[in-house]
Nucleic acid binder design. Structure first.
Lengths: 146, 146
DNA sequence: CGCGCTCATGCAACTCAGTTGCAATTGATA
DNA sequence: TATCAATTGCAACTGAGTTGCATGAGCGCG
């Protein structure tokens, strides 16, 4: 898979396939998230799409995105939600690691990092696992050394 | 309630040792958190301590608690902060696993569960790790089976 | 192509967690 | 006990996210 295929047109198809309506707001958000290399907050999305969707519309698109399984939500350390496209890998085993850069504040989805499993105390049954590493991302780490 | 050593008096000593002032609010919060078996939210603390500390005072006590290293903060899925006492184990390696029960919403500190480490992509340097498992706690799991 | 049902959008007002500024109080030290 | 900085309480504020309701836009159907 060199390029992730799928120009905007593909989203319309996928949206349609799940029985939902294809709207400008949804296409815009999906396109933006697909281009983004990290999980974006509502605020960031609002600013990037300054072309004028309503705050609330974006919230609803993002909710829909998570509900429909196309997207994926994390709560970051600053207690704001961040959204990303659910990659095939994510969708498959339902969980993947995140990395939060202390320097630039960005949250990356580490699709290639396996989520380790830990043994639980007796009586506890785990379903989902959240695994988030905090530190410096490649870009900020590089800046430090220069 | 088999008592983890340290009655209230011990807190006064520890607070004093780190060069901070011993106040009723701090003692109340520390005592409450010590008794609690899960991380508590500001709201829960406020209700438990209905004896009338100001909202803001509690926020400040909690901030102080984390800053001073006596306490420990997690952001839960509902995007609210939860606080717990930093156990010696926590303090030692600085990180430990959490468990969030979907049924009762409580957050437990799993001091005995080792936090697994995962390999990072090149250029990324990790500092802290957050490891949170979601599922059913022993109590709620038990209820299901009865 | 146009009709109409339903869902999506925009607007305004709201909730709730957490923060800030400032004056009054209190803890610890001398 | 007097002193002074740290802590508290109050009030007002911020910013993320939610809700209700009227309007507008998809899209399936004839």
């Amino acid at each position: 898979m060199a390029s992730r295929l799928s120009p905007a047109s593909d989203w319309a198809t996928r949206i349609h396939a799940i029985g939902a309506r294809v709207t400008p707001a949804r296409l815009a958000v999906l396109g933006l998230l697909e281009r983004a290399e990290q999980a974006l907050s509502h605020r960031e999305i609002e600013e990037a799409l300054s072309s004028g969707f309503d705050r609330v519309t974006l919230y609803r698109v993002l909710d829909w995105l998570v509900e429909s399984g196309l997207g994926h939500r994390v709560t970051d350390a600053e207690r704001v939600f961040r959204f990303s496209i659910a990659s095939p890998a994510n969708a498959a085993h339902g969980e993947h690691a995140h990395f939060r850069c202390e320097a630039c504040g960005k949250v990356f989805c580490l699709d290639d990092v396996p989520v380790p499993t830990a043994p639980l105390p007796a009586g506890f049954s785990g379903k989902a696992v959240e695994y988030c590493i905090t530190g410096q991302c490649a870009r900020c780490d590089h800046k430090d050394h220069s």
